[in-house]
């Protein structure tokens, strides 16, 4: 009886964890391969990104072209690998920018409270009420299209989301007595936030940011698809989808499907890793 109960108690969570671990490890492995391919693109890709070959247009996957070719005979696999650089660096830059703004605003709002908090809350509310993409298109309309504008515009749209999340984390953190203990020691507000509070927010924040990375990747791809982000001859994935769509009517789905699937796969993998990572980091620090 006792052995039965202990074995069921012990085994149930382990099985659950193992299943999740498989998804996590597969996703992590996949992302590592993608990043490695992006870093080593010139050596890994069988063709140059823009190597046109009119004798082999709209080929299905297989043979000399692993994932097929597009309407001018460019190798999709090679374009995918070269495009991974821009497709991954874009959301990274966007997130870095949005994090600097968001964490600063969120921490200041939580620490100061009062009217600063109210003003910042209103600004973030306005940003929330505005459809993100519409805001970004507006910014692009004013400052002109291009990858840099798209990244900055999206960073401005993401900053309030991160600010809100940071503020709620920071409020909970500041209610912990160790913060009072630092104040009693004579640690000043700015130093206390930068040196002690923000580092303590990092574990939950990091998991959230990884998930946001997936969203950022999708948003940037969307902008490129709409023609506001990456410009030809780039092989950014959203742009590849856009360039490939002309072939769909004629039955050539590969030039659209390949980059589309790449976006989806990376976003899913990033989400799995992000969720798992935040679980791990939180359980380690929430004590």
């Amino acid at each position: 009886m006792s052995s039965l109960s202990t074995s069921t108690l012990a085994s149930t969570p382990v099985i659950g964890r193992k299943k999740r671990d498989v998804a996590y490890l597969v996703s992590l492995g996949f992302l590592i391969v993608v990043v490695a391919a992006a870093l080593l693109a010139p050596w890994v890709a069988p063709y140059a990104a823009n190597a046109v070959d009119f004798t082999a247009i709209w080929q299905a996957p297989g043979g000399a072209h692993l994932l097929g070719t597009d309407q001018v005979g460019q190798d999709l696999f090679s374009r995918l690998i070269h495009g991974a650089r821009e497709s991954l660096l874009g959301p990274l830059a966007l997130l870095a920018l949005a994090t600097v703004f968001g964490v600063t605003i969120g921490t200041v709002a939580a620490w100061n409270g009062g009217w600063i908090d109210v003003v910042l809350a209103r600004i973030t509310d306005v940003m929330f009420a505005f459809p993100g993409l519409l805001f970004v298109v507006l910014v692009i309309a004013v400052f002109g299209k291009g990858p840099a504008t798209a990244i900055v515009a999206l960073a401005l749209a993401y900053a309030p989301v991160i600010a809100k999340f940071t503020r709620s984390l920071a409020l909970a953190e500041m209610a912990r007595p160790y913060v009072d203990a630092y104040r009693v020691q004579g640690v000043g507000g700015f130093f206390l936030c930068v040196r002690y509070i923000i580092p303590n927010l990092t574990p939950p924040l990091l998991g959230y940011l990884v998930v946001l990375f997936g969203e950022g990747l999708m948003s940037l791809a969307t902008l490129s698809f709409l023609g506001f982000g990456a410009q030809p001859p780039s092989s950014e994935w959203g742009l590849m989808v856009q360039e490939g769509q002309s072939g769909i009517i004629q039955g050539h789905i590969w030039p659209t499907l390949v980059p589309g699937a790449a976006i989806a796969a990376v976003v899913v993998a990033v989400n799995v890793v992000g969720v798992r990572l935040s679980d791990r980091l939180n359980s380690r620090f929430e004590r």
Binding site: R176, P177, Y178, D180, V187, Y196, N200
Partner: peptide, 26 residues
């Protein structure tokens, strides 16, 4: 200001009720 804060802290220190929350876990 920093000097005034430190001067006070140097005179009076405090031990808090909750031993689980009053230390920085990092």
């Amino acid at each position: 200001g920093r000097a005034a804060r430190l001067r006070r802290a140097k005179e009076i220190q405090m031990v808090f009720q909750d031993p689980y929350g009053s230390l920085d876990r990092r």
